[in-house]
């Protein structure tokens, strides 16, 4: 199996985020919340504070490491929820058709018509701020594109000979969906999910920015950006490093998704003839 440079770059960036999140308690030089010292506030990067300090004198580097935990959780969990909803609705709608298809299509169109951030805001308003409700809100908002892709893939795969063959061999509907249709549409779904992970990280940042996401003083890259907005001219590093972290992780997720799509294509799995 040959994977391109982009895949490895994506994998490396994603691995970096995962390691940062997992190892944060051991490798972070300071506590992200408790080690606040107003004497050290707004220090530029130096040997002690690699990424500088923020207005409360907390180490930006340590806060970014801990923030990776939040971003990873948000990215992965929300996309798992999104994909599950999108695949289930889209595949069944495409396969069964009829009134169920009409209903799912209507629902998808309604979801697409509502700006996702507004919908997430509404969900957050009902559930209240915090990580669990953030995950639910983001998990419920972005499934419509996945659903559309799942539905259109199912429609085209349904007429393939091997799906008809499975029907004549006595496979039930659910078995056909899981063994014949789902594996053949995972490519685009995976790409959607990784792109979605990127946008979920951004949405988390936006919601935290609006005060509905992660509550201070706990660090998330989004809330760090919020805090930085008054300091952007005085202490640009407070904004630059969380921004860079968001940028690199989103980039990593996207490159990884592209690479995965290629490696999942069975034509890349050729043995020697």
């Amino acid at each position: 199996m040959r994977l391109g440079f982009n895949f490895w770059l994506g994998a490396a960036l994603t691995a970096l985020v995962i390691f940062a999140g997992l190892l944060a308690p051991w490798i972070a030089p300071f506590d992200p919340v408790l080690d606040a010292d107003l004497m050290n506030s707004e220090l530029p990067p130096d040997a002690t504070f690699w990424f500088g300090t923020d207005a409360q004198g907390r180490d930006v580097y340590s806060r970014i490491l801990y923030g990776a935990q939040i971003s990873l959780t948000v990215g992965i969990v929300s996309q798992v929820i999104n994909s599950l909803i999108g695949i289930t609705l889209g595949m069944t709608a495409g396969y069964w058709g009829g009134w169920w298809d009409d209903l799912v299509n209507g629902l998808t169109n309604v979801m697409l018509a509502i700006p996702s951030l507004i919908f997430a805001l509404a969900v957050m308003a009902v559930l209240g701020p915090g990580l669990p409700s953030l995950l639910i809100a983001l998990g419920l908002t972005n499934w419509s594109w996945t659903c559309r892709i799942a539905r259109s893939s199912t429609l085209s795969l349904k007429s393939q000979g091997y799906v008809q063959a499975a029907q004549t061999l006595g496979y039930g509907d659910l078995r056909i969906m899981f063994s014949q249709i789902l594996p053949n549409m995972m490519g685009p779904i995976l790409v959607m999910a990784t792109l979605g992970m990127g946008s979920a990280v951004l949405s988390e940042a936006a919601l935290s920015f609006l005060g509905l996401g992660i509550q201070p003083p706990f660090p998330s890259w989004g809330s760090m950006l919020t805090d930085a907005r008054q300091l952007i001219q005085l202490a640009p590093w407070v904004a630059i490093f969380p921004g860079l972290a968001i940028f690199l992780s989103v980039l990593g997720f996207n490159l990884l998704g592209d690479g995965l799509r290629d490696s999942l294509d069975p034509h890349m799995r050729t043995r020697n003839p």
């Binding site: 000979g161 004549t168 014949q180 034509h267």
Partner: peptide, 14 residues
């Protein structure tokens, strides 16, 4: 049982 026309579409590539 059935034998299909298009041998390229009638086998699951995965």
């Amino acid at each position: 049982q059935m034998v299909f026309q298009d041998p390229y579409a009638s086998l699951n590539p995965r």
